[in-house]
Design a protein around this nucleic acid. Sequence first.
DNA 1: CAAGCTATTGCAACATGTTGCATCAAGGAC
DNA 2: GTCCTTGATGCAACATGTTGCAATAGCTTG
Lengths: 153, 153
Amino acid sequence: MNEPVGAAGPAWDRLPDRLREQGLRWTRQRATLLTVLRASEGHVTGSQLIDRCREIEPATTPSTVYRTLGVLESLGVISHSHGLDGREEFHVRPEAEHGHLICGTCGADAELPAADAASFLAALRRDHGFTARVDHLTVTGRCRTCTTEGSGT
Amino acid sequence: MNEPVGAAGPAWDRLPDRLREQGLRWTRQRATLLTVLRASEGHVTGSQLIDRCREIEPATTPSTVYRTLGVLESLGVISHSHGLDGREEFHVRPEAEHGHLICGTCGADAELPAADAASFLAALRRDHGFTARVDHLTVTGRCRTCTTEGSGT
DNA sequence: CAAGCTATTGCAACATGTTGCATCAAGGAC
DNA sequence: GTCCTTGATGCAACATGTTGCAATAGCTTG
């Protein structure tokens, strides 16, 4: 909760122990997923992760992957948000917390720096008593390009 | 875009004609869904709508309902956003545009008045050239109650 | 009213997750 | 090293949508 978990750093290597400290276990399947996650930059969907795991271990089953992703998320190692269609998108250890700006027209997915949402989130807290999670914030709309191109439509 | 479409008002009654004007058709299945929608306040999920349609017309099939919902959404009659798990939530004719504040702890779903998000959205437009849709904006986090109760946890 | 065009429908199959349950196997105890 | 506890796995079934396609049926024309 307070250690500086570096992106592809030592935090990954200590994962097995972190799990064991919680009474959880380190298994072959989890090692496979870890390998895949370490090689995944940016956002990945659940099915993509499953596909990649199967390249290493063909016997990989969806339920195991999803359940492990849940465990990793509760450990704060990864986080997830939802794409345009509500499908899950996992962020592998975002170096900086960020939200998403997804264009409903072209599908572009831009990162929204936490700082840009800070005052909005602060207002939500002040006015609604609501503590929002930046890394799960997804805003949909139209990106600059699509707005420009479609302006005459 | 400029007519005052009242919640359960005459706009519903003119739906058949609105569809026909676009070269679309008014069918028994759509009438069923319309009946259900008129009786649905607030938010409903796709499967809820299907269930309710089946109460009237047992032969209702999912694909037809989802496709019709898409048509209605493009007409601006309804809109949808995504719940906590990314599942679709349809808003039946929101009188006022609004976003959602969903609590990941208790599941509470509060409405976020468009005005409260206005400056944030304006900033997105200014700084990112991104035109956001308020009615599809879902912010997840912790509501006031859960923040208070869980403060000591 | 009959004919024709084509939007809709319903079905079946698929995609993405989730869940219950019996079985397996980490990892600690002895 | 063996035994045990119980977390994790794999399977099967289900939930929620989505999509391709052939058949159906609105709606306009003549």
